[in-house]
């Protein structure tokens, strides 16, 4: 199976802080990581390849620094890595980003499966995956948690998680999946994988290497624009309940009764 996994290098937003004096983002010193959902997507791809044979290519769009993220994916076991990097791609919203990635995939060539993380932890939109599928004219399934592949050419079964439970869907390849969590989580790179990754070439493609309409790239090709960035409101005034565990528990139980959560005959 030929699988392409889209990954993004993102700042570790769990480490980002807000400057309390100016109420602005403090991005300095925040480590860059592979978007966690993308690692789960990669793990799904690697598991399928280990099971069925084939290859896994990781694709990213970003500045040259994104090569670090791609190397980590190679260390985990991906076979090839491609980076789309060019000034022309910069400032893109999800429509322009998905368009660019789709162009990259067309250049990669034949594929059976595209797997993306559901959302990036900086943009948090969860839109690029389905939009890519639309640009490529292939079906998509979001919230995929499991894939069962049959023999050559047979349709695959995908488990899709919903609010009320899981559905099982059947679709012929090629298809694009988006993933939040997969199995026990992404594998750690093994030592030999790390050595291989640092000896491998990451293909870097500029705007001239892909077939695109320049008017739909980057900031120019983005229908949505950011009007304003601000810090979320801070709520004030938490009522601290004093006393030891029993005293505090008693107060909470009273509050729950007042809210009619308990003592209303369930």
């Amino acid at each position: 199976m030929k699988i392409v996994v889209c990954v993004k290098q993102v700042p570790d937003t769990t480490e980002v802080k807000i400057d309390p004096k100016t109420n602005t983002l403090m991005r300095q010193g925040v480590p860059s990581i592979v978007n966690p959902h993308d690692k789960h997507a990669l793990e799904m791809a690697l598991s399928l390849r280990d099971q069925l044979g084939g290859s896994v290519t990781v694709l990213s769009m970003g500045p040259m620094q994104s090569q670090e993220a791609l190397r980590e994916c190679l260390a985990m076991g991906a076979d090839h890595a491609v980076l789309l990097s060019d000034r022309a791609f910069g400032g893109a919203d999800t429509l322009a980003t998905s368009y660019t990635l789709a162009a990259g995939i067309r250049k990669i060539g034949e594929f059976d499966l595209i797997i993306c993380g559901k959302q990036a932890i900086d943009g948090d939109t969860a839109q690029v995956g389905p939009e890519m599928a639309e640009h490529l004219g292939i079906p998509h399934i979001t919230y995929a948690s499991q894939v069962e592949a049959g023999t050559d050419g047979a349709p695959v079964r995908v488990h899709r998680d919903g609010e009320e439970g899981t559905e099982i869907l059947e679709v012929k390849l090629p298809v694009l999946l988006t993933v939040t969590h997969y199995g026990d989580g992404p594998r750690l790179p093994v030592v030999k994988g790390i050595r291989r990754a640092f000896r491998a070439e990451v293909d870097v493609w500029s705007v001239n290497d892909v077939e695109v309409d320049r008017n739909v790239l980057g900031l120019k090709g983005s229908p949505t624009q950011v009007r304003r960035i601000f810090s979320p409101d801070k709520r004030c005034g938490c009522e601290m309940i004093p006393g030891d565990a029993c005293a505090a528990a008693s107060v909470v139980a009273t509050k729950l009764r007042e809210l009619r959560i308990i003592g209303v005959g369930s």
Binding site: D124, G129, E163, S222
Partner: peptide, 22 residues
């Protein structure tokens, strides 16, 4: 919702318009 975030981007890409999430 799961389905809303599944449908909206597909439609937005087909129409080629802007979509804001969540």
């Amino acid at each position: 919702t799961h389905n809303g975030r599944d449908l909206a981007p597909r439609v937005a890409a087909r129409i080629k318009t802007g979509l804001t999430a969540d």
